[in-house]
Amino acid sequence: MFILDEQIAYNSGEGLAIANIIELKDVRKVYRVGNEKVVALDSINLTIEEGAFCCFLGTSGSGKSTLLNLMAGLEKPTKGQIVIKGSRIERMSEQELALFRQKHVGFIFQSFNLLPALNAVENVCLPLTFRGVSKEIREARARKMLKDVGLETHYRHRPSQMSGGQQQRVGIARAFIGKPGIVFADEPTGNLDSKTTMEVMKLITGIARQNGQTLILVTHDLGIARYADRVIHILDGNIEKIEENSGNVGVNQ
């Protein structure tokens, strides 16, 4: 469907000057459960370059989801700095964060999270709606996005009328429609069968690489982690190890 090899080759090329899009410095997150403190993230130091495809791999409770939430500005760290595109997002107000997410962040959820009252086109439109893009423009773009993910026959379908794979495609179209710099995907294939998983993963990586977008994926599935340029293993709130996948990612089976 996509010419993956060519793009991977482009992205993994060594000589390109690539800026850091995400920088985490000493990030620590402690939850308070009753009287007990639970350390979700101990001390994370990490930089991710623009256009990279990173996968956070870990068991449940390892803190990988917390890390994603912190980077997306959904939660504030207990300590440390999170710099995304040069801004300290842990210092932003909720209003600023909303604007920030509007401009720079796309989101793909495990449970799709489409709005049941809206049809496919309207769901895909949402991020543009919040930006205040006019209806004609955003719907035209949404239709093009849906066509790109292979749903040109389902423009007017509501989420309840679509299969899981189709819903996730709508979710992907929605995440990418605003051309965000970073796309976060939280177990995007967790609710899908293995065949659909492959299709969906190819779709996500394909679009992200085509546009040079940074893709941050969280999963516990080793098979999915193999699609990424870099796999960051998380264990008990710390980075256990970082693996670089040299080339051939996604087609090495």
């Binding site: 959904l74 997410r101 509007q102 401009k103 962040v105 959820f109 709005l115 949402l126 991020p127 919040f130």
Partner: peptide, 14 residues
């Protein structure tokens, strides 16, 4: 609740 959350994550203003 979930819808509202999704909208917020997608960048809906307060």
């Amino acid at each position: 609740t979930r819808e509202i959350g999704v909208m917020k994550v997608l960048g809906a203003n307060l």
